[in-house]
Design a protein around this nucleic acid. Structure first.
Lengths: 208, 208
DNA sequence: ATTTTATTGGAAATTAGTGTAACATTTGTT
DNA sequence: AACAAATGTTACACTAATTTCCAATAAAAT
């Protein structure tokens, strides 16, 4: 899409801007300056301008950024301008939390279904999303062109679930389990490991 | 503890090494090379050696690293050599998931209690951890010298909960809500924002 | 005992990213 | 027309992080 690869850290900041824009728009704010974004995010105004300028000139000099326009641009950059279909594999507490969270708070991502193996919960609904048996994963993934799976099963079951996901044609896994996943190169895995997050935090807690 | 500040990214990788060492030790593996750690983690062997060498010379040349010795060293560096007491504020699905997860999988961190305001769940137990009313937070935090709180309440309630946490003497918050927390400077907040993680992931999913 | 092989650890070079500043440019307002 | 406000662009220093290279060391093989 762009000539140069965007720095990873820039990509991580874009969703932060997006959220603030959503807030501003719902409060009928039409214009925002990099200074105001700085106050909200904690990043410096210069950095915010540079981040945005990396992808193009989205602001108007002397005025600031049009919130709706900037929001559209960021959506397009991230690739959220069309709804992204995802599935959640693992209907435990974490899977349920993520499902509800996405449905209620994340307007850009659509949870198509939640998968599990426990017969007691199959057929239940989490808000309006059905819990299905994992054997239906491939069928559903194909039908809805699912790109991303959130993996929230217990670590012991993660390798099997991961190979089912890979087999269904899904190419990106956000792995919440502790297990290292061995999948074909065509599948991109990002680990979102909450206990690692916590442990690295404790380092800073102790050095205060 | 050390002369220079350790790079943040090194600190984030240490828990990864720790987990692998735990696995190796439970399989009675006594020696591991940076090459083998590389295979497990995906980081390069050179980087792993450099990460560890930052804190001292823990390996023996020609051989590798003694797993138990290295584990002890890393625990000491992070500050996990003595158990760290934490609390979880918010007994929803995410709070319950994190509580169970820590109790069963994270031997270094001790969840003292879970707090909420919903009278229906107060007094219940999550495995062996009691759910208490938030009004008891200060008392419990003082008694158990709690350093860290995981904040898992809905975003609307996050600011109030955060000020209760700050008021209880806890100095580090891992914030899972979407809300930006305004707390005194003495409190360190780290945002663990799952939807931002997901959105930045989608950028990479689309650029494949 | 000597050579070979495996491996760490440290120095140096390189790359990536951030912070700061300066300033031309554009827009809106008075 | 003049002024104020804000972006976008460039330059540069600084810091963080990674990669590369190789000497030093230890164990294994001959």
């Amino acid at each position: 899409m762009e000539q140069k690869n965007a720095p990873k850290l820039v990509i991580r900041r874009l969703p932060v801007y997006l959220r603030i824009l959503d807030n501003l728009i719902s409060n009928d704010v039409e214009i925002v300056s990099s200074r105001e974004l700085s106050d909200e995010t904690g990043f410096t105004a210069e950095q915010i301008r540079k981040d945005l300028a990396f992808f193009g000139a989205f602001g108007t000099r002397g005025t600031g950024y049009n919130t709706s326009f900037l929001r559209e641009k960021i959506l397009k950059i991230i690739g959220l301008d069309e709804h992204t279909n995802i599935v959640i594999v693992g209907a435990g507490h974490l899977g349920i939390a993520l499902t509800r969270y996405n449905i209620t708070k994340n307007p850009y991502v659509n949870v198509v279904a939640v998968f599990d193996v426990d017969p007691h919960i199959i057929g239940e609904k989490i808000i309006d999303v059905e819990v299905m048996h994992i054997s239906r994963l491939k069928e559903i993934a194909k039908r809805h062109a699912v790109k991303v799976a959130l993996l929230t099963v217990p670590s012991e079951q993660a390798p099997i679930a991961a190979s089912e996901i890979a087999n269904s044609g899904i190419s990106v896994i956000l792995n919440f389990s502790l297990s290292k996943l061995h999948v074909p190169d065509s599948v991109y895995v990002r680990n979102a490991d909450l206990s690692i997050e916590l442990q690295s935090l404790i380092y800073y807690a102790n050095s205060k």
